[in-house]
């Protein structure tokens, strides 16, 4: 499977990563290689094999529905860049 430059740009934008124009060919090369490996894996016949959702073949242990956390807002907000009136502040976002 071969990608082109615009695929790389799109993937980077989705991940909110900024990549320089000059680095793009390297990413294109590396990511294409990874996808080629996936293509190779795709050639294996998996007709009667159940898809694996997790490499550990065990199932989840569940938690009892109990409140175990206490309010640590002050502690957490010490490392936040900006807070006001208990809220974490971010640049204005309006859709």
């Amino acid at each position: 499977m071969s990608l082109n430059k615009s695929d790389i740009d799109k993937i980077a934008w989705l991940a909110r990563l900024s990549i320089s124009e000059e680095d793009t060919p390297n990413y294109l090369h590396d990511v294409s290689n990874i996808l080629d490996l996936v293509e190779t894996m795709n050639t294996v016949d998996t007709e009667n094999i159940e898809p694996l959702a997790h490499p550990l073949e065990i199932t989840a242990r569940l938690r009892e529905d109990k409140v175990t956390e206490t309010d640590q807002r002050e502690h957490f907000q010490k490392i936040a860049p900006a807070v006001d009136n208990g809220h974490y502040l971010v640049p204005k976002v309006i859709e």
Partner: peptide, 15 residues
């Protein structure tokens, strides 16, 4: 929840 009013040029986030 994002709160768009009351934080001037910012949005307040309540998690």
């Amino acid at each position: 929840k994002s709160v768009h009013d009351g934080f001037f040029d910012n949005t307040g986030v309540d998690l």
